[in-house]
C-alpha cells in the first residue's frame, strides 16, 4: 500500500512540467527514502534524476518498495485537473496496475480522484558516482534560462567555459556569434540573486542547447540553479525543490572528433 499526501500539490505539477519534454515514459520508485525517478531521454544523451524526500510529504506511507511505470504526458493531463492550491494524494495498492491521484481543495469542499493505468517500462538504472567537479556555478535560474533561450536563437550548441575571469557562455551560428560572460557577484539585495563561481580548475565544454533549454523548464521550481562542470563527466544542472529534494539533469558533452 502506498499513500503519499502532498499539501503543496502544485509542486508535483511543476515537477511534471520540468521533465515531460525530456522523458515520455518513466518508472517512479517509491521507498522509505522518498518518491524518486531516474530516466534518460530517448537518445540517451541526457538523464534526469528526481528526489522528493519522504519528510517533505505531510503523510508518507510506503509499505514496500514499489516501481510505477507512468506515461508522463498522461500523468500531466491528470494533474492538470487539480486546482493550484489543492492537496494531492498519490495512492496505489500493492500489485495494482493503476495509480490514483486524489485532489482536495484547501477548504475540503471539493474532492476528486483520477485513476491512471500503469505501464511496464524496461529501464536501465544507472549508477551516478560521487565526483569532484572542476567548477560549480550557482546563479539565478531565470538568468540561466534567458541565456540558454537567447543563445539558441543564434546557434545549436553552447560552449561553457569557466576561468579566473568568470563563466562564459558562447555560441556560433549561420547569422553570427554570441558570448555572455558572467562574473561572480555577491553584492546583491537577496541571496538568490547572487552569482557564485567556484573554480578548482579551468574547464570548457560544449553542449547541445536543445537539451539545456529543456532543463530550464524546471525554472519555476527554484530561484537558483547550480551547474557543475568537469571535463570527464556530464554537466549537472540542479534545481533544488524547497525542503523536499531536487531535480538534477545530466547532459553528456559534445566532443571534437
Amino acid at each position: 500500500m502506498l499513500e503519499l499526501r502532498l499539501v503543496q500539490g502544485s509542486l508535483l505539477k511543476k515537477v511534471l512540467d520540468a521533465i515531460k519534454e525530456l522523458v515520455k515514459d518513466a518508472n517512479f520508485d517509491c521507498s522509505t527514502t522518498g518518491f524518486s525517478l531516474q530516466a534518460m531521454d530517448s537518445s540517451h544523451v541526457a538523464l534526469v534524476s528526481l528526489l522528493l524526500r519522504a519528510e517533505g510529504f505531510e503523510h508518507y506511507r510506503c509499505d514496500r518498495n514499489l516501481s510505477m511505470g507512468m506515461n508522463l504526458d498522461n500523468m500531466a493531463k491528470m494533474l492538470k485537473c487539480s486546482g493550484n492550491d489543492d492537496i494531492i494524494t498519490i495512492k496505489a495498492d500493492d500489485g495494482s496496475d493503476s495509480v490514483t491521484f486524489m485532489f482536495e481543495s484547501p477548504t475540503q469542499d471539493k474532492i476528486s480522484d483520477f485513476e491512471m493505468k500503469l505501464m511496464d517500462i524496461d529501464s536501465e538504472h544507472l549508477g551516478i558516482p560521487e565526483a569532484e567537479y572542476h567548477a560549480i556555478i550557482r546563479m539565478p535560474s531565470a538568468e540561466f534560462a534567458k541565456i540558454c533561450r537567447d543563445l539558441a536563437s543564434i546557434g545549436d550548441t553552447v560552449v561553457i567555459s569557466v576561468s579566473k575571469e568568470g563563466v562564459k557562455f558562447s555560441t556560433r551560428g549561420d547569422i553570427g556569434a554570441a558570448n555572455v560572460v558572467l562574473r561572480q557577484n555577491t553584492t546583491v539585495d537577496k541571496p538568490e540573486e547572487a552569482t557564485i563561481i567556484e573554480m578548482n580548475e579551468p574547464v570548457s565544454l560544449t553542449f547541445a542547447l536543445r537539451y539545456m533549454n529543456s532543463f530550464t523548464k524546471a525554472t519555476p521550481l527554484s530561484n537558483i540553479v547550480t551547474i557543475s562542470l568537469s571535463s570527464e563527466l556530464p554537466v549537472v544542472v540542479e534545481y533544488k525543490i524547497a525542503e523536499m529534494g531536487y531535480i538534477r539533469f545530466y547532459l553528456a558533452p559534445k566532443i571534437e572528433e
Partner: peptide, 14 residues
C-alpha cells in the same frame, strides 16, 4: 564536427 557523447559513456548500469 562534434560528436555527441552518450550518458552511458560515463555512468554504468547499477
Amino acid at each position: 564536427p562534434c560528436l555527441q557523447r552518450k550518458i552511458m559513456d560515463y555512468f554504468k548500469e547499477d
